[in-house]
Amino acid sequence: MSPLLEIKDLSIDLYADSEKFNVINNINLTIEKKQKYGIVGESGSGKSLTSLSIMNLLPDALAISGGEILFNGDTDLTNLSKKEFLKIRGNEISMIFQEPMTALDPLYPIEHQIMEVLKFHGSYSKKQMRQLAVEMLEKVGIPRPQQLIKEYPHQLSGGMRQRIMIAIALICNPRLLIADEPTTALDVTIQAQILDLMNELTDNYDTSILMITHDLGVIAETCERVAVMYSGEVVEEAAVTTLFKNPTHPYTVGLLESVKSLGDKSNKLYSIPGNVPTPKQLTGGCRFASRCPHAMEICRSQAPPLFSIDADHKSKCWLYGEEEVVNG
């Protein structure tokens, strides 16, 4: 059985000041059917761009410069016409975003915004669409859906709006749900509810999730596999349990340290010193070298490939591949 989504050697470039900068560099991801897959990394590491490229919704200044995105084994999403893509978006693959406050059109009632998706992807009567919308709102845990459906986005709380986004995303029963920081903008108590809801619904619908977050806690709660992204590259890829038990890449180790120090009584917040380099600052070598406590000579001159730690665990770091270098 072919995987649901396979990102192969995907690169994305930014066109700015009449120059070209690499933003996503040769990443590979495989999401199986019904799998919950996570991408984690600091802000600016390229998570959102990766997800937008799947939907062909990259901002104007950015474009895919190489690789392919296979959906259902045979459809290459990077090669699809605009018209063909309309059938995928919202129907086969849907997406929810970080900012529930601004993600809905302020001028239309909730009803319209849910029924709209049904109109794009099916032929229902108005009555059927309203019926389906109400049922979907019930499923995402919205009280009094009959009344709420007439309300406008500004009348609802952030948590409610995110539930509505989930309803919109799932109403056509997609194969893949991409969630880009779906809980980051919400209160802590609401965060857990929304994650539970997404877990439960995608289980019921056999939908795969691509969960994008900067928060390892969210990964731990929802995902089976995870890719750690740094500066436009996947630097480590493993099953979630493996990653937490046996992190290999110094960046992953740093991320885990900073999470642990959150619960630390000493109250000393650990964070990885320095910042993600911007696309314009990149030089050759390992992109993490300027912040890495283990950086070696080779790290600054040559970019490490993705080494296999074992069959199911890969890490993009020279610490795990000296032999290959000698040989290769």
């Binding site: 939907m55 919704l57 605009k82 309309l86 059938k87 995928i88 978006r89 919202g90 129907n91 849907s94 997406m95 975003f97 900012e99 601004t102 993600a103 809905l104 059109d105 302020p106 709209e116 998706v117 794009f120 992807h121 986004m165 919109i168």
Partner: peptide
């Protein structure tokens, strides 16, 4: 943002 949402729903450019 909401324009991105509408595109992500599969709306035609006309809509």
């Amino acid at each position: 943002d909401f324009i991105r949402t509408i595109r992500a729903k599969g709306a035609r450019e006309r809509v």
